[in-house]
């Protein structure tokens, strides 16, 4: 990539005033560095990943409303986690975390356990208990 071809696309990076350093070639074909404000294909890939997260959050809400899932599912998606990551944050086996997705089992969880989840999601225990999937 030539230095003058280093992309300067406005996007999520430029919004945050973040510029990346890249290696690119000068007129003689020698390597030098240049700063980039952003690149569209990357912005789209990142936006795609963020959209995927919001889709998952909406799907989780729908499951909760239908009585098929506990608020833990929603907050897990909101925190961009999967079951494996959540399990390691709360220090509970994966199969038990999966059980806690069931509303009936969630209702019986001790405050101690709920606190672990609340800490992992960086929210208060009340937010977890009283979550309304609207």
């Amino acid at each position: 990539m030539k230095k003058e071809e280093v992309p300067q696309d406005e996007g999520n990076l430029s919004k945050n005033n973040v510029r990346e350093l890249l290696y690119a070639t000068d007129e003689q074909g020698n390597y030098t560095t240049a700063l980039s404000k952003g690149w569209e294909p990357k912005s789209i890939a990142l936006a795609n990943a963020m959209d995927d997260i919001s889709d998952r959050m909406e799907a989780a809400k729908a499951e909760i409303r239908a009585g098929n899932a506990s608020p833990i599912l929603y907050f897990m998606e909101a925190a961009k986690m999967d079951i494996g990551i959540l399990a390691s944050y709360v220090g509970i086996w994966k199969w038990r975390v999966k059980r806690h997705f069931k509303p009936s089992i969630f209702a019986k969880l001790s405050d101690n356990t709920l606190q672990k989840y609340a800490d992992a999601f960086d929210i208060g225990i009340d937010q977890l208990k009283n979550f309304k999937a609207e």
Partner: peptide, 15 residues
């Protein structure tokens, strides 16, 4: 998109 994100990890310039 995931392939591109990995390829486009911070500072690779797309390559």
């Amino acid at each position: 998109a995931q392939i591109v994100r990995m390829q486009e990890e911070i500072g690779t310039g797309g390559g």
